[in-house]
Nucleic acid binder design. Structure first.
Length: 652
DNA sequence: TCACGGAATATTTTT
DNA sequence: TATTCCGTGA
C-alpha cells in the first residue's frame, strides 16, 4: 500500500502522496489553502479526482470535516466524491457537510422557516407536482382567448421557473423566449400570481422556491447569515458553470465570513442555460471575488488525441470562453468519422452493424453509447435494436419517482402528513371511478371547511359517483389514523388499497407493482413519514445507468442510449452521435439565436469528449422538416467543412 | 360530469 | 414511445 510507504517517510506529514498521484495543476488546486479559487477543468481532466483529493487534504490538515461544505447538483456526485475521499483517507471524510444545493436549502429552511414567515412543515413540490398544480389553475382560468395558442401546463411551468431562476419578470421571459405567447401574457401572469398564492396557502415550496427563500433568508437576516456562513470554513462547488444567478448569490452570501471558496467547472460544458443556468457566473467569478486564483486543468486522461483535436476545433469557434487546449499523452487512436446515411433507417442499420462488429472484438456493450440531441431521435434505432435483440438502456427518459403509479401511492401518504394538501387529494379522488374534477373539488372543500384534519374525510358524504370506492378510501385512512403504524406499514396499507386500482388502470401492472414493492423496501429505512416524503422529493432513488431499480437485470451488460445532456460526466470506449443533421443538432429553434446556438455548440463539444477510442457522427442526408417546411440536408454546422485530417468523411 | 378513443406531436431536464 | 388534447356520447 502506498499509504504505508508514505507513513514510513517520516518527513512527510501526509498519508496521501499528493505530489505523486496528481499532476502539477491538480496538485496546485488540491493544496490551495485560503481565498478564492476557480478551477477550469476541461473534459476528462480529473475534475472529480481533484475535488476528492482536496477534501482529503483539508481533512488531513486538520480542518473539521463539518466545516467543509461541498455543494453539487446531484446527490449521486456528492456521495461519490465523499466515498472516494473516504477510500483515500479515512471515514472522517464521510462527515463532510455536503449535498445538493436543494437539500442544503431544505435543511436550512426547515430550521429557520419562521424567520421568513413560513412553517417548517412545508411540502416540497417536484416538477410534476408543479405542473399539475399549474395545470389545474390553467383549467380554472376560463377566459382563455385563442384556445389553441395558450401554452400548455408544461410550458407555463417552464416560463414561471425561468423567470424565477433568471430573476426576470414573466413579461420579459415571454417576450424573449416565447414571443408567440405574448398576446397571452396577461393570463399567464394571472396564473402565475394564483400559483404563488396557492403555494403560500398550502405550504408548498417548489424546487425554485427552496433556493429563492434560502437566498432571501441569507440576505435579509444578517445574524442568520453570520451563523450559517461561519459554520463553513471552506466551501467547494462542483459544476459551477451550471449554477443560476440565485445559486451564485447564495454562494456569495455564504462565503461572507470565511471567503474560502473554490469553484470547479468548465464553461465549455455549460449546457443548462435553458433552465436558467448562466455560464456568466463562471466568467464573472474572478470579478465577484477579487484576487481569485485561476487554475486550468488541460491534460485529458480520457480520449485519444484525434478526438481531442476535433473537440478543440469545435470549441474554438465559441466567442466567449476561457481559453484552453486539451491534450493527452495517449498515443495513436483513430480519427472521428462523419457518416452520411441515405435515411434514418440506414443510420440505424449502420449503428447496429458497427455495434455487432465491436461485440465481435469483445468490446462490452456497456462501453458503447449512442447519443442524440432529443430523446425521440432514438425511436427508430430502439425498434431496430429490439429486432436484433441487442439489450440497451435509455438514460434520462424515465423517472421512477415521476411515474404515475408511484405518484399515486405517494399522494395517499402525503395527505397523512399534510391533510390539506389539495393536490394530493385531488389525485386520490380522481383515481376513483365516476369521480372527476368537479366532485373531487367538492369533496376537498367539504374536508377543508371542517378544519379537522384527515378525520374530516369520514363525515363527508357524496351523492354522485362511486360510494363503494369512497368507502374503501375512508376505511384506509381510518385504519392508518387509528393504529400507530410504522412508515412501511402505512405504505403496505396504501399498497393494498391501491392494488385493485392499479390493476384496473394499467395493462402493465405486474411491472408497476414491482416498482411499488421497491418503494416499500425504501420506506422500510425510514422512521418518520415526513423525512421519507422529503427525501423522495429531493433525493429520489435515481434510475441511472447501472442503478436499475429492478435489481435482477441491473448488472446486465447493455448498450447505452442517452441524450447528450444526460451523458455529461460519463465516458465510453465508443460513442455514436446520431442525427448530427443541421436543423436537428443544432436544433432548428436555436439557429437564429446566437446564445442558444453557442449552447448547441457546447453540447456538441460535450458529446465529442465522451469518447475514449472511437467516435462516429451520423446523419440522414435528406429529411423534410414539417414545422419549417424545409429540407434538411446538411451535416451539423459544427462539423461541416472541417478538414479531412480532423474529421474523416464517409458515405454509406 | 365523466370516460373513452383517436390523433397529433415531439428539445434538452442534475433538483 | 408516450403523453396530451379534444370531441363525443352516455
Amino acid at each position: 500500500m502506498q499509504q504505508e510507504q508514505q507513513i514510513s517517510h517520516s518527513r512527510c506529514p501526509f498519508r496521501i502522496a499528493y505530489s505523486k498521484e496528481l499532476n502539477r495543476s491538480q496538485l496546485d488546486a488540491v493544496t490551495f489553502k485560503e481565498g478564492s479559487l476557480l478551477v477550469i477543468a476541461g473534459a476528462g481532466s480529473g475534475k472529480t479526482r481533484t475535488l476528492t483529493y482536496r477534501v482529503a487534504r483539508l481533512v488531513e490538515e486538520g480542518v473539521s470535516p463539518r466545516a467543509i461544505l461541498l455543494l453539487t447538483f446531484t446527490r449521486k456526485s456528492a456521495q461519490e466524491m465523499l466515498r472516494r475521499a473516504t477510500d483515500l483517507l479515512d471515514n472522517r471524510c464521510e462527515k463532510v457537510s455536503g449535498g445538493t444545493f436543494h437539500s442544503f436549502a431544505n435543511a436550512n429552511l426547515r430550521k429557520y422557516a419562521a424567520k421568513i414567515g413560513f412553517k417548517s412543515d412545508f411540502t416540497i413540490l417536484d416538477r410534476v407536482d408543479m405542473e399539475n398544480l399549474i395545470g389545474m389553475l390553467r383549467k380554472n382560468t376560463r377566459d382563455l382567448p385563442e384556445h389553441h395558442l395558450f401554452p400548455k401546463k408544461q410550458t407555463l411551468a417552464q416560463i414561471i421557473s425561468k423567470s424565477v431562476n433568471k430573476g426576470l419578470p414573466i413579461d420579459e421571459i415571454i417576450y424573449d423566449e416565447y414571443p408567440h405567447f405574448s398576446p397571452n401574457s396577461a393570463q399567464i401572469k394571472k396564473i402565475h400570481e394564483e400559483y404563488v398564492r396557492q403555494k403560500r396557502e398550502h405550504h408548498f415550496l417548489d424546487y425554485d422556491d427552496l433556493l429563492v427563500y434560502l437566498k432571501q433568508l441569507l440576505h435579509d437576516q444578517p445574524e442568520i447569515r453570520q451563523r450559517i456562513s461561519s459554520a463553513y470554513q471552506f466551501i467547494m462547488v462542483d459544476e459551477y458553470q451550471d449554477t443560476n444567478p440565485v445559486q451564485a448569490e447564495i454562494l456569495y452570501l455564504l462565503s461572507n465570513i470565511n471567503e474560502n471558496i473554490m469553484v470547479v467547472g468548465d464553461d465549455s460544458q455549460s449546457i443548462y442555460a435553458f433552465r436558467g443556468a448562466s455560464f456568466k457566473n463562471i466568467m464573472e467569478f474572478p470579478r465577484v471575488f477579487p484576487n481569485t486564483k485561476i487554475i486550468r486543468l488541460e491534460k485529458n486522461y480520457r480520449s485519444v488525441q484525434p478526438i481531442l483535436n476535433l473537440a478543440n476545433v469545435i470549441i474554438e469557434q465559441a466567442a466567449n470562453k476561457y481559453k484552453k487546449n486539451l491534450f493527452t499523452t495517449r498515443r495513436g487512436g483513430t480519427k472521428p468519422v462523419l457518416i452520411t446515411a441515405e435515411s434514418e433507417h440506414a443510420q440505424s442499420r449502420f449503428v447496429i452493424e458497427k455495434i455487432q462488429d465491436l461485440s465481435e472484438k469483445e468490446i462490452p456493450l456497456g462501453q458503447i453509447a449512442v447519443l442524440f440531441r432529443a430523446s425521440f431521435h432514438s425511436f427508430d434505432l430502439e425498434i431496430e435494436l429490439a429486432k436484433e435483440e441487442i439489450p440497451f438502456i435509455k438514460v434520462g427518459g424515465f423517472k421512477f419517482m415521476e411515474s404515475a403509479h408511484i405518484k399515486d401511492v405517494l399522494a395517499h401518504l402525503k395527505v397523512i402528513s399534510n391533510p390539506y394538501d389539495w393536490l394530493s387529494w385531488h389525485r386520490i379522488f380522481l383515481l376513483l371511478d365516476k369521480i372527476g374534477i368537479k366532485t373531487a373539488q367538492n369533496i376537498f372543500s367539504a374536508l377543508y371547511e371542517k378544519r379537522t384534519g384527515i378525520v374530516g374525510l369520514f363525515t363527508v358524504n357524496i351523492k354522485t359517483g362511486n360510494p363503494d370506492g369512497f368507502n374503501r378510501l375512508k376505511e384506509l385512512f381510518s385504519m392508518i389514523e387509528s393504529g400507530h403504524m410504522s412508515v412501511v406499514e402505512m405504505g403496505e396499507a396504501v399498497f393494498n388499497y391501491y392494488w385493485p386500482i392499479l390493476k384496473e388502470k394499467y395493462d402493465d401492472h405486474p411491472k408497476r407493482s414491482r416498482d411499488l414493492e421497491q418503494l416499500l423496501t425504501i420506506m422500510d429505512r425510514y422512521r418518520t413519514l415526513e423525512k421519507f416524503l422529503t427525501d423522495m422529493a429531493l433525493e429520489p432513488p435515481s434510475s441511472s445507468i447501472n442503478n436499475s431499480l429492478s435489481s435482477y437485470d441491473g448488472d446486465l451488460d447493455r448498450l447505452v442510449l442517452s441524450t447528450v445532456h444526460s451523458a455529461k460526466g460519463l465516458e465510453w470506449h465508443t460513442v455514436f452521435v446520431i442525427w448530427t443533421l443541421d436543423g436537428r443538432f443544432p436544433s432548428l429553434r436555436s439557429i437564429n439565436k446566437e446564445e442558444e446556438l453557442e449552447e448547441e455548440m457546447r453540447l456538441m463539444y460535450v458529446a465529442t469528449t465522451r469518447a475514449k477510442e472511437n467516435l462516429y457522427f451520423t446523419y440522414p442526408e435528406e429529411i423534410y422538416d414539417r414545422s419549417s417546411r424545409t429540407i434538411l440536408n446538411r451535416p451539423s454546422r459544427f462539423l461541416d467543412g472541417l478538414p479531412g485530417d480532423i474529421l474523416q468523411k464517409s458515405y454509406l
